[in-house]
Deep mutational scan, measured.
Amino acid sequence: TVKFKYKGEEKQVDISKIKKVWRVGKMISFTYDEGGGKTGRGAVSEKDAPKELLQ
C-alpha cells in the first residue's frame, strides 16, 4: 500500500493498482486504477516511497 496526499487529502492505494511510475526530481509520481475506468494520480517523496514502487 502506498500512502500519499493529493490536493490536501490523505489517500492510499494498493501497489497492485499502480499502472505507471516515474521520477520527478526527489518525488516519485504515479498513476493508478481508481476503478470505474478512472485513472488517479499521486506522488510521494523518494524517502517515503515503498521499495516496490522504486523497482
Rank of each mutant, 00 (worst) to 15 (best):
T1H: 10
T1P: 05
T1Y: 14
T1I: 14
T1K: 13
T1F: 14
T1R: 07
T1W: 12
T1V: 15
V2I: 15
V2P: 01
V2M: 07
V2N: 00
K3T: 11
K3N: 09
K3V: 12
K3E: 05
K3R: 13
K3A: 06
K3Y: 12
F4L: 03
F4W: 11
F4N: 01
F4E: 01
F4R: 01
F4M: 03
F4Q: 01
K5P: 05
K5C: 15
K5I: 15
Y6V: 14
Y6F: 12
Y6K: 06
Y6W: 14
Y6T: 08
K7P: 01
K7D: 08
K7E: 08
K7Y: 09
K7V: 03
K7M: 14
K7F: 10
K7R: 13
K7L: 13
K7W: 08
K7A: 10
G8N: 07
G8F: 03
G8Y: 03
G8K: 04
G8S: 05
G8R: 03
G8L: 04
G8I: 02
E9R: 11
E9S: 07
E9P: 02
E9L: 10
E9Q: 13
E10K: 06
E10W: 15
E10V: 14
E10N: 10
E10I: 12
E10F: 11
K11Y: 12
K11E: 02
K11G: 03
K11M: 12
K11S: 03
K11N: 04
Q12P: 01
Q12E: 15
Q12S: 14
Q12V: 15
Q12K: 09
Q12A: 11
Q12F: 12
Q12H: 09
V13H: 01
V13D: 00
V13M: 04
V13C: 08
V13I: 13
V13T: 06
V13Q: 01
D14Y: 08
D14C: 09
D14E: 14
I15V: 10
I15S: 03
I15L: 13
I15C: 06
I15F: 08
I15E: 02
I15W: 05
I15A: 04
S16E: 11
S16N: 12
S16R: 10
S16Q: 10
S16D: 10
S16A: 13
S16I: 12
S16Y: 08
K17P: 00
K17F: 09
K17I: 07
K17Y: 08
K17E: 07
K17A: 12
I18S: 00
I18M: 05
I18T: 02
I18Q: 00
I18A: 01
I18K: 00
K19N: 08
K19W: 09
K19Y: 11
K19T: 13
K19Q: 09
K19P: 00
K19A: 05
K19V: 11
K19E: 08
K19L: 15
K20E: 13
K20Y: 12
K20I: 08
K20M: 10
K20P: 01
K20A: 11
K20H: 13
V21H: 04
V21G: 02
V21T: 06
V21M: 07
W22T: 08
W22F: 07
W22Q: 06
W22K: 05
W22E: 04
W22A: 04
W22Y: 09
W22M: 06
R23F: 09
R23G: 03
R23V: 08
R23T: 05
R23I: 10
R23S: 04
V24A: 10
V24K: 11
V24M: 11
V24D: 13
V24F: 11
V24S: 13
G25F: 04
G25I: 02
G25W: 03
G25T: 02
K26R: 12
K26M: 11
K26N: 15
K26W: 07
K26C: 13
K26V: 12
M27H: 06
M27R: 07
M27Q: 07
M27Y: 15
M27W: 15
M27K: 08
I28F: 04
I28K: 00
I28W: 03
I28G: 00
I28M: 03
I28H: 00
I28V: 07
I28Q: 00
I28R: 00
I28C: 02
I28L: 10
S29N: 15
S29M: 15
S29P: 02
S29D: 04
S29Q: 15
S29K: 15
S29W: 15
S29F: 15
S29A: 15
F30S: 00
F30N: 00
T31C: 09
T31E: 11
T31I: 13
T31P: 00
T31N: 04
D33C: 05
D33G: 03
D33P: 02
D33N: 04
D33T: 06
D33S: 06
D33I: 06
E34P: 03
E34F: 06
E34C: 10
E34Y: 08
E34M: 14
G35F: 05
G35S: 06
G35L: 06
G35D: 08
G35I: 05
G35A: 05
G36L: 08
G36E: 13
G36S: 10
G36M: 11
G36N: 15
G36P: 09
G36Y: 07
G36Q: 11
G37N: 07
G37W: 03
G37I: 03
G37P: 03
K38Y: 06
K38C: 07
K38E: 07
K38W: 05
K38D: 04
K38S: 09
T39P: 04
T39K: 06
T39D: 05
T39N: 06
G40M: 10
G40I: 05
G40W: 04
G40Y: 06
G40P: 02
G40N: 06
G40L: 08
G40V: 06
G40T: 05
G40E: 07
R41I: 14
R41H: 12
R41F: 15
R41E: 08
R41T: 11
R41P: 02
R41D: 03
G42S: 03
G42Q: 02
G42F: 04
G42V: 02
G42P: 00
A43D: 07
A43G: 06
A43N: 12
A43H: 12
V44T: 04
V44Q: 01
V44K: 01
V44S: 02
V44A: 02
V44L: 10
V44W: 02
S45G: 06
S45N: 15
S45R: 13
S45K: 13
S45Y: 14
S45A: 14
S45T: 13
E46S: 11
E46V: 15
E46N: 05
E46D: 08
E46A: 14
E46Q: 09
K47G: 09
K47L: 12
K47M: 11
K47F: 11
K47Y: 11
K47R: 13
D48K: 10
D48C: 09
D48R: 10
D48V: 09
D48E: 12
A49P: 02
A49L: 04
A49F: 14
A49M: 05
A49Q: 02
A49V: 05
A49E: 01
A49D: 01
A49S: 05
P50Y: 02
P50T: 06
P50F: 02
P50N: 04
P50L: 04
K51S: 12
K51A: 13
K51H: 11
K51I: 15
K51T: 12
K51V: 14
K51E: 12
E52Q: 10
E52K: 08
E52D: 08
E52P: 07
E52R: 07
E52C: 08
E52V: 10
E52N: 07
L53G: 01
L53K: 01
L53A: 01
L53C: 03
L53M: 08
L53E: 00
L54Y: 06
L54N: 03
L54E: 03
L54C: 07
L54M: 07
L54P: 02
Q55Y: 11
Q55V: 13
Q55H: 12
Q55M: 14
Q55F: 11
Q55C: 12
Q55L: 14
Q55K: 14
Q55G: 09
